[in-house]
Design a protein around this nucleic acid. Structure first.
Lengths: 299, 299
DNA sequence: TCCTAAAGTGCAAACGTTTGCGCTTGCGTT
DNA sequence: AACGCAAGCGCAAACGTTTGCACTTTAGGA
């Protein structure tokens, strides 16, 4: 083989084997969002790590909308360019998942799917994430705690909100609709949401942002009004740079790399016929307390 | 076609066409580095944007070392999994490029290659980047200016260093070997390099870090010693979060998205036979002055 | 009615593998 | 010397397209 400089043609091989040893990864967020947030890069690291070790290639597709996500995913699979796909945004009602199940395409979801469907997914315990953050704020004496959350159609949004509500209820605190805002998982969204909260007649003393990017935006808004340090903040994801902000941001650390690695493992197992049926895995998260929330609200 | 739910098999089509309409992207840095630095995600955005518009798919490969980069790239191309590749790290002496040229594989380099080779690349004007940063510091009265740079085998390191040297020379300032350190393009590397500089008998009053990540590390070191604000810092890349640090970091903004988009265009043009021969493109950068360097050093 | 051009139809070859089958060859055993 | 078995070799089929060719059909004009 070396003598003739021969290399087997992977395409011909795939054609015969009816398998490409390639996995598709669909990043389904407006690209600007997806990549300013270190969540996706870190997820990709985990995925690429496992796929590489297992001899699979990775095909990357970015989709700006759920519609594009759907068409791109189905195209990849129906044209047999990939053996299976990894999805990165669990939605509350997702037609794509119905299609994938109907056409029997292998896939694994990062983020859970509405429970009743027999779908493989890996998720972190987002209800616990929300509860952890809010209980921490409550333990520091806060009673007026707002929520800056993501788009309502994502499961992660629903779950973290549930944790927020659970924690409020357990502490006997009333839910206030005016304390719940959509920050679109972006810095700008967090900034605008925080400005809105500041202007409320009775503004919150603490805010739980369901993503670090939004917490950064919120901090910017607070700083503009000279309120940094006066309102407690907790984010989610433990973006490395947020520890260096002033004040350093409290956050919930999510095992993003492992999320990706596990999803890739599950898909590969399925593709190689090792998997028995759909499996669900939940990975734990961890509260990281820093100065942005580590002070006691005076009674 | 709809009636029978028929979808053409891309593999069979590729086999016949002897082309896959797929492009390989090789990210050749230790993965932890690659993805904590927003450079690569942003580059991928640009690439994915163009490829999508041109009907090409993207195959992503991460390589932890130059050796892996080489073997992974050649494997992808020789096995005909992709029609061409995009490389992301121009090295001073790169055996891979020799191989690619010898085997006549289409590729485009992000970052320039040693000039004499007939290679297509897109780059920003890294000599200008270095000169711009240092001239800015000189204009603020600094005469003891250090350089925290990346790995010596990368072209970007060589070029930014050249800009640094040029600016010193034009200002009649002597080069001091003890002011030049390798920060490995990481936060930790920048941190260690800064500590080293602080401990010099005659320590610098300003530091040019050739990447924001290293500047963030340097700032951490300064802060630990209570010297933040006392040493001017300039980074490179305009990572969005660095504007929020205290003090906000001056930086050189690089058109990373355009770098990726242009590289993708050039490769696609080449693959579709539109390109005449190797082309080189240089994109301009821009100094962004913030508080970390915007004060005058007292004479 | 006949001829010509255009449009449509069906068949075979090619792309580069993998796999199974039948055949030959070589070797060890009785 | 004859036999059985393993190994090796070459050939053909299959994977699902695309493309070219030969052929038939259709329509329009003389």
């Amino acid at each position: 083989m070396k003598e003739l400089n021969y290399h087997p043609n992977a395409i011909a091989r795939s054609l015969h084997a009816k398998a490409t040893r390639t996995v598709g990864l669909i990043i389904a967020r407006p690209a600007e969002q997806a990549f300013t947030n270190p969540f996706f890069p870190e997820l990709m690291r985990g995925i690429a790590h496992v796929l590489h070790a297992q001899g699979y290639d990775l095909m990357l597709t970015m989709a700006d909308s759920p519609q594009e996500e759907r068409s791109a995913s189905l195209k990849l699979l129906r044209q047999r360019r990939v053996d299976g796909i990894l999805l990165t945004s669990g939605r509350v009602k997702d037609k794509l998942i119905d299609d994938l199940l109907a056409e029997e395409h292998p896939f694994v979801l990062v983020g859970r799917s509405p429970d009743y469907r027999p779908v493989s997914w890996v998720n972190n315990d987002n209800v616990a994430v929300g509860a952890m953050a809010v209980e921490h704020l409550i333990s520091r004496g806060h009673r007026r705690i707002a929520l800056i959350n993501g788009p309502a159609d994502l499961m992660v949004t629903v779950d973290r909100r549930q944790g927020y509500l659970d924690a409020l209820q357990r502490a006997g605190l009333a839910y206030r609709a005016e304390y719940e805002l959509d920050g679109h998982f972006t810095k700008e969204g967090g900034y605008r949401a925080m400005l809105h909260l500041i202007n409320l007649p009775e503004s919150p003393t603490a805010v739980f942002c369901t993503d670090d990017a939004m917490a950064v935006g919120a901090l910017t808004a607070l700083r503009e009004r000279g309120l940094d340090g006066a309102v407690a903040l907790v984010g989610v994801n433990d973006d490395p740079l947020t520890a260096l902000l002033d004040p350093p941001l409290s956050t919930i650390r999510i095992p993003v790399f492992d999320l990706g690695a596990t999803a890739a493992y599950m898909l590969v197992d399925h593709l190689s016929g090792k998997a028995d049926g759909p499996r669900q895995v939940i990975l734990p998260s961890q509260l990281v307390v820093r100065a942005s929330s580590n002070w006691v609200f005076p009674v």
